[in-house]
Amino acid sequence: MVRTLVEEPEQQTGARGRGRRVLSVVLAVVGVGFAAWAALPLLGWDVDRYTVALVALTPYGVLVGAVLALAGLLLRQWPTALLVGLVTVLLAVGVAPRAVSSAPPARGGELRVLSVNAYFGQADAARVVDLVRRHDVDVLSLQELTPELVARLDAAGLAAELPHRVFHAGPKAEGSGIAARYPLRELDLVPDSTLAQPSALLERPGSRPVEVVAVHTLYPMGSDTHDVWRRELGDLGQVPLTGTPRVLAGDFNATLDHTGLGDLLGRGYTDAAAATGAGLDATWPAGWFPPPVVLDHVLTTAGITPQAFEVFPVPGADHRAVLATLVVG
């Protein structure tokens, strides 16, 4: 009996040791996988639809890395904790500033820009017009604008709020448009793209004119759409900056961690959400699966200072609407 009592604690200790070793091995494997995932945005390696999807989830990597690093410390797996901790810090350096406002106070004329992806024209027109009216919107960028949605928007009173427009309505996701409180003169800034991306010069009394582009690059997750998506993001960056302030507003189908959008920012654009501390406010999908990411943006050039950024649900749409308050100096 005494021998049995002595053996049982020894067996329990051995079982705990084996369990600890198994956990350590699992943690090491997961840690290496995490490092491989984190390397994608750090190295700019969004080369196909699968890596594009993984890169879109980069902000979640900071949370995942923190949990794994803590687990490594608790299990005293120092190499794993060190590797994961360093990678997590590198991710956080890129992600965390998006939640902190860096926008300086500015003087000039205020410009409110609303962007809505209407999901094949199914967005609730009354809700869109209500947002325009309630937030005193000056410019509305619409993606996936169908002729049927145009009719519903007008029935809801859009023309009374924003009487000037450059609409390229089309079936399903093909159409886009710009509506404004002030006169618009259509431009031809963006090269031909799969989905309409109209542009116009907004002319406001007592303020500098502003170029506006309704952006909608092709969805990159199709079996043959990734290269087109990358090219269309690149085409936006090739539009010459002439000194006239410019706003790009719409569904870029890209996050700030994708190389195409990063290159665009490097050419002189500012992301209004990130500049005002709202850069982690997800815009797609409208629900909670897949994990929400930031695909809709308002980008500005020199001469425009972002001041605020908000996100709103729109019934019938799979994206949330985004509203940027800008100052044109």
Rank of each mutant, 00 (worst) to 15 (best):
P171G: 06
V93D: 10
D227F: 12
V137N: 06
D224G: 06
P9Q: 13
N253V: 02
V137S: 08
L295D: 05
G44M: 10
G121Y: 05
T51A: 08
T259H: 11
G234D: 02
G316H: 11
L40E: 01
Q12L: 15
Q143R: 04
Y269T: 00
P291Q: 11
R165N: 04
M221E: 10
Q197S: 12
A56N: 06
V212W: 01
D46N: 11
R181V: 07
P105V: 07
G268S: 12
H135K: 09
E110H: 15
D192S: 14
V210Y: 00
H216P: 07
D46V: 02
D296M: 10
A36E: 10
R20F: 12
G260P: 01
M1F: 13
N253F: 05
A159Q: 10
V215N: 08
S207N: 12
A81D: 04
G260H: 00
S115Y: 03
T13Q: 15
V2L: 15
P205G: 13
N117C: 01
G266W: 13
L295Q: 06
T58Y: 03
V322N: 05
P97N: 08
V150W: 02
P220M: 08
V30T: 05
V327W: 12
R3V: 08
V100H: 11
D263F: 06
A155S: 14
D192A: 15
Q77N: 15
L280N: 04
T283R: 03
R204V: 13
K172A: 15
D154H: 10
V132C: 13
R20Q: 15
L323N: 01
A38F: 09
H226L: 14
E232A: 01
P205N: 12
H168W: 13
S176D: 05
S101F: 09
T146Y: 10
P220V: 03
A321F: 05
P183S: 04
A156Q: 05
E8N: 12
G206P: 04
L91S: 03
Q77K: 10
V30W: 02
A125C: 13
P147I: 07
T225A: 09
A302D: 15
V311M: 10
A214N: 06
R320C: 11
G17H: 11
V64E: 00
A35P: 04
G108K: 08
V137C: 14
P9R: 11
L114S: 00
V95S: 00
V113D: 04
A155D: 15
A160K: 03
L23T: 03
R204G: 09
G316P: 07
A126H: 07
L27E: 04
L140W: 01
D296S: 11
T305P: 05
L27H: 06
F312Q: 11
D154L: 07
D271V: 02
A254V: 00
D154I: 06
A123G: 07
V100G: 11
R181D: 09
R267P: 10
G94D: 14
V213S: 03
R127L: 08
L326E: 02
P315H: 12
V95M: 03
L42M: 06
G287M: 05
G33R: 03
H319Q: 07
R208T: 10
F167Q: 08
Q11I: 12
L264W: 01
L189I: 10
G287K: 02
D124W: 07
